[in-house]
Computed example of a mutant assay.
Amino acid sequence: MLINFLGSVWLQLTSSAEFAEVGCPSLRVRASVSSPQKLYSSKTTQVKSGEEVQIAVLGASGYTGAEIVRLLANHPQFHIKVMTADRKASEQFGSVFPHLITQDLPNLVAIKDADFSNVDAVFCCLPHGTTQEIIKGLPKQLKIVDLSADFRLRDINEYAEWYGHAHRAPELQQEAVYGLTEVLRDEIRNARLVANPGCYPTSIQLPLVPLIKAKLIKLSNIIIDAKSGVRRGAKEANLYTEIAEGIHAYGIKGHRHAPEIEQGLSEAAKSKVTISFTPNLICMKRGMQSTMFVEMAPGVTAGDLYRHLKSTYEGEEFVKLLHGSTVPHTRHVVGSNYCFMNVFEDRIPGRAIIISVIDNLVKGASGQAVQNLNLMMGLPENRGLQYQPLFP
């Protein structure tokens, strides 16, 4: 075992969560999204073939926690040792999510009762605003992938502005590495704490970061219209009767993923990038489509954008450029860790339209988290993630 430490932490939490890849492929173009100041130096843990990695899933009764469990059912080395859900403590996981009743899993426990003495790594699927203090109290040897938004923004003052309270673990924020896997692969390998990206930022940054770094698109007038499946929550706006048979725009002037997206694009540009971003909820269980309207640099064509993205992601398992005029649809990626995208010439001269689709629970959350922990453990990053999309 990697960990030989007994620790427990306590906080009364709801267990809701944001609804929000055999060899490691090479990446042709590197793009740095964040450059955290390192207070902790870590070397990639090399897990031997066949050696089990003991996992804790915190907030296992939320959608992202349940998706972690579903994905790890196909992982030959990650074994779930601890599962927490304060409101459902002592219950069997199969009683909360009957579709996973076939899995041999420990009972749910409250976080204050969790035993981390035989745990190697943690997926933290707790709501944002609660994760910082929890992670601060975990054994320091643990590898952690945090699926909340608590460590995504590098600037703690910007975090306070967007999330309404001071950052409660600023020393950990300086250590955290932003986990956009195909872009920050080398940094993630050596990280102890990875901030898993949000779903909208994943679908948007994967196409735009390489184009911005290559100076193929202008930094002004980037307009993004994004649509997502409905996330779990008790808000009236998320109820079926409010969402069904319609589209629900929200966070029009102040969605919390906007600064996360701008942080990544600005780092790629090495100058400030501001976007127009409108998210929308639509009545489907899974999926996300981001439609990006961009102005190309002088002399650049939509074909140039396509060829650069094709070259950038050539050899990548989970990011694919579709052929010709094929339009990416969310149904093409449901249940998988893929991001499909394509580039189209706009009818307005000098502009292009980029469409990117993901399953917001997989590549947009739990799948990317597994991909990141594979890297952190020195495993092929596709391990346990080779689920093909479900169709129809």
Rank of each mutant, 00 (worst) to 15 (best):
I275L: 12
L321S: 04
V183W: 01
L142C: 08
S366V: 07
H167S: 13
L108D: 01
E242W: 00
T278Y: 02
Q103F: 13
N118E: 14
A60R: 02
A365N: 07
K38R: 15
F123R: 11
A226Y: 05
K320P: 00
R307M: 09
F97W: 13
Q388T: 11
W162G: 06
V29E: 12
A365W: 00
I144H: 07
A20S: 14
D225F: 01
L219M: 01
A191L: 07
R383G: 00
V177W: 00
I134R: 03
T241Y: 11
Q388D: 10
D186N: 11
R256K: 15
R351V: 01
I261W: 05
T278I: 15
D146M: 01
L239Y: 00
K140P: 05
K38H: 09
L71W: 05
A258M: 15
A85F: 02
G384D: 08
G335D: 13
K140G: 10
L105F: 08
T202S: 15
A234C: 00
L219W: 02
W162C: 04
A89E: 12
I188S: 05
H167Q: 08
P127L: 06
C125H: 01
I80A: 06
H255A: 08
D115Q: 11
A365S: 14
Q263V: 04
S16F: 10
H75L: 00
E295P: 01
G137V: 07
D225R: 11
E182L: 05
A89V: 03
Q92K: 14
S35M: 09
M284L: 05
Q263F: 02
R232Q: 11
E267M: 14
G364N: 06
H332L: 04
P279D: 10
M288F: 10
E267C: 10
I247G: 05
A110M: 10
V362T: 14
I204V: 13
I217Y: 14
N360L: 13
A121S: 15
F318S: 12
S356A: 15
V96K: 02
W162L: 07
S41C: 13
L305Y: 04
Q46A: 13
P76F: 02
N118R: 06
S266A: 07
A149H: 09
T241V: 08
I55D: 09
S271G: 03
Q289K: 14
Q205V: 15
K320S: 08
S95V: 09
Q103I: 10
G233T: 08
L305S: 03
L379H: 06
T278K: 13
P170E: 12
A89Q: 09
E236G: 08
V327N: 03
A244N: 10
A60I: 11
H75R: 01
S15R: 03
E187T: 08
V370Y: 04
H308T: 09
Y159D: 05
